[in-house]
Design a protein around this nucleic acid. Sequence first.
DNA 1: CGCGCGGATGAAGAATTTTTCATCGGGCGG
DNA 2: CCGCCCGATGAAAAATTCTTCATCCGCGCG
Lengths: 225, 225
Amino acid sequence: MPRVLTIEDDTVTAREIVAELTRRGLSVDWADNGRAGFERARDGAYDAITLDRMLPELDGLALVTRLRESGVQTPVLMISALSDVDERVRGLRAGGDDYLTKPFSPDEMAARVEVLLRRHGQAARETTLRVADLELDLIGRVARRGGVELELLPTEFRLLEFLVRQSGQVLTRTMIFEAVWGYHFDPGTNVIEVHIGRLRRKIDPPGSAALIRTVRGSGYLLEAD
Amino acid sequence: MPRVLTIEDDTVTAREIVAELTRRGLSVDWADNGRAGFERARDGAYDAITLDRMLPELDGLALVTRLRESGVQTPVLMISALSDVDERVRGLRAGGDDYLTKPFSPDEMAARVEVLLRRHGQAARETTLRVADLELDLIGRVARRGGVELELLPTEFRLLEFLVRQSGQVLTRTMIFEAVWGYHFDPGTNVIEVHIGRLRRKIDPPGSAALIRTVRGSGYLLEAD
DNA sequence: CGCGCGGATGAAGAATTTTTCATCGGGCGG
DNA sequence: CCGCCCGATGAAAAATTCTTCATCCGCGCG
């Protein structure tokens, strides 16, 4: 469940925000002043933050600035009674991701939070490839099948990555040699067969459907979903 | 230079948008109807899109929906004369990333486009670490110093990644063993020295300033910018 | 200014990973 | 239904990468 932090000193507004977001299935925490809000935002691994512009202790504008300086990239929806353009522009430039003026409709507020969540998640997901229940974390260089980690050697990982990126297409030996080995020719051995074999043994542990299909006379194919 | 696509049928508004964004150093293309806009958005690899809600041929709302269905994730700022809440919520839910109502201040419009660009770029950049003229592409697993690729072995890359992620801090042997080797103890050999040595020879080719500093009695340190 | 300790370095050795080779098995055309 | 060809597999060889060891170097303290 996505976690949202609401930083808002006005109890009534805070209740409203928390209620609406909760109603939509989000898990919401509330901080009622800037300092506490900053600390939780910094440490709390939230997926999004709603932030009041005017707060006791640490102002909303200063808060986002500081947060960004500390390297926290959590998306922030700034909420404020100040509606003039300069103010909105200032909020956005300080590092806010969106700006909403009070009074607001809970529905629009929620829609904007959802946009932030959606975009954030997507961006993070660009580092992960998925096909069926197979998952490749390209940064951590780990592959998982149905959640369990597979122990792949470097070349096996590259081979699998290529198959996944091109899933649904038949990959010829030539294509595989180019992509995985960087060869522009066929060395005339059966390295590919050997690696495909090891890969199969590792990624298809008992029970799971076979992922890599041999296309006799052409090459290999990883089924798309 | 970031590329923006403006989809807008009203010539006056379009000119205004293009002028303002261009003034801020963005490269802007203009499509004056939905169909053309959709095609360019789909093929054109833009970094952001401003999209009029009401368009001839293919409506703005339908356009984002289709775009998202085709897997295009370019952030979209929807711009519309329709200001009521339901309308805004609809725009956001269809896949828009932000919603601005006409008439708008060019300054705020530009600020919002910049937010979309900033966030987008950041997300992409999370796959790359940088310190000074050193660059680690975490997905491709290649390091570059001043643009030229370095030939790092796997362990060297992990070690360098750790140093870069914690740049500016002194890393003790214990910390390095934990992060790079997964050991929770000091094996009493000098593996680290050896790897640091090799790393230095590879990343500091003649001319460049030495990046890894030895902190006698404590550990190693990669200077932050 | 010399000594000692922590760190650097070169090269050998160990371990891991990749490739090759020989052989086996099975689908498919004749 | 048989034989052939393409692909699979097990094991050994080769190559790469990592670790250890022995020795050297030099900073900083006395």
